[in-house]
Amino acid sequence: MDRSDIDVDTPPASDGRPRLVVCVAEPEANAFFPDETRADLAALGAVTWCQPDDVRDADSFAQVMEHAQVLVTAWGSPRLDAGRLAAARDLELVMHAASSLRAVTSDDFWATGIPISQAGAAMAPAVAELALTGTLSLLRRTHRLDHALRSGAGWDEARRVTRAREIGGARIGVIGASRTGRGYVESCRALGADVHVYDPYLPPDDALRPIATDLDTLLSGSDVVAVHAPATRETAGLIDAARIATIPDGAAVVNTARSEIVDMDALYDAVSSGRLDAALDVFDDEPLPTDDRWRRLPNVLLTPHVAGATVESRRRAGRIVVDEVRRHLAGMPLEHAVTRAQMERMG
Rank of each mutant, 00 (worst) to 15 (best):
D2M: 03
S4Q: 14
P11G: 10
P12R: 14
A13I: 14
G16W: 07
R17F: 08
P18S: 08
V22L: 06
A31S: 12
A31K: 13
P34D: 06
E36S: 13
R38C: 15
D40T: 05
L41A: 12
A43R: 09
L44H: 08
A46R: 10
V47F: 00
C50S: 14
Q51G: 03
V64T: 04
L71A: 07
L80D: 11
A82M: 09
G83D: 15
R84K: 14
R84E: 05
A87M: 06
A88I: 04
E92W: 03
M95W: 00
S100E: 11
S106K: 00
D107Q: 14
F109Q: 05
I114E: 11
P115N: 09
A121T: 12
E129F: 01
L130R: 12
T133Q: 07
G134R: 03
R140I: 09
R141T: 09
T142G: 04
T142A: 11
L145F: 04
L145G: 13
H147F: 06
G152F: 04
G152L: 09
G152I: 13
W155S: 12
V161C: 11
V161A: 15
R163Q: 13
I167E: 05
G169N: 07
G169C: 06
G181A: 01
G181R: 07
R182S: 06
G183L: 01
Y184V: 03
E186I: 05
R189Q: 13
Y198T: 07
Y198Q: 03
D199T: 07
P200E: 01
I211H: 10
I211R: 08
L215C: 10
T217W: 08
V224L: 13
V225Y: 01
A226C: 11
A229Y: 06
A229F: 06
E234D: 14
A236P: 00
D240T: 05
A242V: 11
P248E: 03
P248G: 00
A251L: 12
A251W: 01
V254D: 00
N255Q: 07
N255V: 04
T256Y: 00
R258N: 03
S259Y: 02
L267E: 10
D269I: 03
D269W: 00
A270I: 02
S272A: 15
R275D: 12
D277A: 15
D281N: 08
D285K: 03
R295W: 03
P298S: 07
N299Y: 01
N299D: 04
T303G: 05
P304Y: 09
H305T: 12
V306W: 00
R316I: 09
R316V: 07
R316N: 14
G318P: 12
G318K: 02
G318Q: 09
R319A: 15
E324V: 01
E324M: 10
V325C: 11
M332E: 15
M332F: 07
T339L: 00
R340D: 01
A341N: 05
